[in-house]
Amino acid sequence: MNPAASVLLLTTLTGFAYGLLAWIGGFAAAGVPPRSPGFAVVGVVIALMAASAGLFASMWHLGRKERAWRAFSQWRSSWLSREGVAAVLVYPIAAGFAAAAWFDFGGTAMRALGALTAVASLATVYCTAMIYASLKPIRQWHNPHTATDYLIFAIYSGAALYATLHALAFGHARRAAAITAAAAVIAWFAKQAYWRYVDGQTPLATLAAAIGLPESIEARPLDSPHFTENYILREMGFRVARRHAAKLRRLTLLIAFLLPFGFSMIASLTPWSLVACTLALAFAAVGMFVERWLFFAEATHVSALYYGRTI
């Protein structure tokens, strides 16, 4: 599948944003209120800004941006519509939580609004993931790994952002950085499990089945309908060389998970938490972008079969 920059930005930025909200809200829900009201408010503002940037980026790839509001209408059947509705609902909920923190509403209100913020944020990430996971023609997406991984990566990248903000605000991030390091390990295993799964898959169909012939018949392309690229080939026929993919997978493991793990450990155990947290965040951001690029580039679509591509 064509890895369009707008969609890569949307899914990575919202991962960081909603992950951060999940942590801030989650801590409050668990009865650990923000260390200062200002920290909660700044965290919510940064998260909502990052989420907005991602949502705006996703609008670049719309053919008719001025009609984007129509996308909120079909939530009964469409995960894309549900994502839009959930993303919009996060704003008032998170704002309510920030207000509760700022005006010190106290125990129950903070807990309830924190829990709501975390749930709404992760629900939005889940809707985003399900857009991809619900597409039957793409075997690399239509499986239980997709939604699980999106949630794990959002929680991981949110932790990296939370730790950095914590270090910035209070000069240390011992526990937050330790959580980030643990999340990096979980994310590492999740990605490895995903690759093992997709590498073991068999193609969804053969060319013979795609043109309605019995499997016993062997088919191969003779004449193409057209001799230049068309929309289907550009969008669905994107190919990444196996050699490059292997290299990018190693690079993903290194930049997205291993380096942030190392820097988070340093942040947790040494006094240089701000520098180490910032480096962990920077590598996680670049790494998650590469990871997302591969998630698209390595995905194959059944319709490319008609053009003799392997899927």
Binding site: M1, G63, K65, I131, E235, V302, S303, Y306
Partner: peptide, 27 residues
Amino acid sequence: DLCIGCKLCSWACPYGAREFDEDEGVM
């Protein structure tokens, strides 16, 4: 008149039956 040109429908079709109109920005 309602299409926003998000292209998701073309991803959902295994037969490659939908093509995007780059001029009008709709499917």
